[in-house]
Design a protein around this nucleic acid. Structure first.
Ligand SMILES: [Mn+2]
Ligand SMILES: [Mn+2]
Ligand SMILES: [Zn+2]
Ligand SMILES: [Zn+2]
Lengths: 149, 149
DNA sequence: TTGGTAATGATAATCATTATCATTAAATAT
DNA sequence: ATATTTAATGATAATGATTATCATTACCAA
């Protein structure tokens, strides 16, 4: 049933296996722009794969994060949210979050300028505090169009 | 036992009361630079106030966040962390987080430049996406001095 | 085709946080 | 100073997200 996937060989040959749940979960996340929780992924896929369990979703999401195929975010709402990490160059973006309805907006405006400053800051901080910086997170909080009225 | 506090009058006269647990918690957080979890606050104060319950700590932290006296952060480790919001002008800072040991470092380097860019970005995003932006969060992830060896 | 073993899923456990409710204790009126 | 009012507290139990266990299933290399 699962078509050969372009990620298949990344798993195989390293002790890992390419399975139906893994293909389904990766497939689903690669086709949505949403930032999904484990429960949401489970609910969406359980309809198509009734045998799929929530626990497997958790394990698979964790694996995919470790493989670098997904981002994992904590927006402060209790559950973690996962987003597919596109491999195109200009996919880097930051977030705009509505504190009332939880809506999450990706934005790329000013990301170039932000990244320039980030790079500079990173270098300075790495030296000053002997940190090896690997990642950053920038997000704005506020009220979306609908919620601010 | 609880000395009159400079925050006391902010609670009184608004249906709220100034209590021993509230004084103790606010006091403790105002004297540390740590980013403490509810459990950590509870453990630290339970020695001095054996009657204090973890539930009260949660409720008080929530109240103090709503009153604008504390920041609340989700660093992705499962629990929320709270930091006293100093009322001095130049207290604004961002965070450097070790993904291995969880160490959190405040930094103020480049914060002025960051804030300038943030302001510009905020304005552009607010207009473009009809968002009313109220807050932002910037953090760097990596390995601290000890953990990177 | 098959055997070794990684992955799965049912069940139960853990951890952070929240809800309930009887009791206690601030604030205010007497 | 004392009584009154009711917000705050804390014990207990509940919830919700995530993780651990373990017997069973199913990849996949040989
Ligand atoms: Mn995103
Ligand atoms: Mn801080
Ligand atoms: Zn909204
Ligand atoms: Zn560290």
């Amino acid at each position: 049933m699962p078509r050969p996937h372009k990620w298949q060989h990344r798993l195989q040959g390293h002790g890992s296996r390419w399975t139906v749940p893994r293909g389904a979960i990766l497939n689903h996340l690669s086709r949505t722009s949403k930032h999904m929780s484990a429960k949401e992924v489970y609910t969406a896929l359980h309809k198509i794969y009734p045998a799929l369990g929530l626990i497997t979703v958790y394990r698979t999401l964790d694996l995919l994060v470790r493989m670098g195929l997904l981002y994992k975010f904590s927006f402060g709402t209790g559950e973690s949210r996962y987003e597919f990490k596109s491999d195109t160059e200009d996919s880097h973006h930051h977030h705009l979050i509505c504190t009332k309805c939880g809506k999450i907006l990706d934005y790329t405006d000013y990301v170039d300028e932000e990244l320039e400053l980030i790079k500079k800051t990173e270098e300075a901080l790495a030296t000053k505090h002997s940190f090896c910086i690997t990642d950053h997170n920038i997000e704005f909080y506020g009220l979306c169009d609908k919620c601010k009225s």
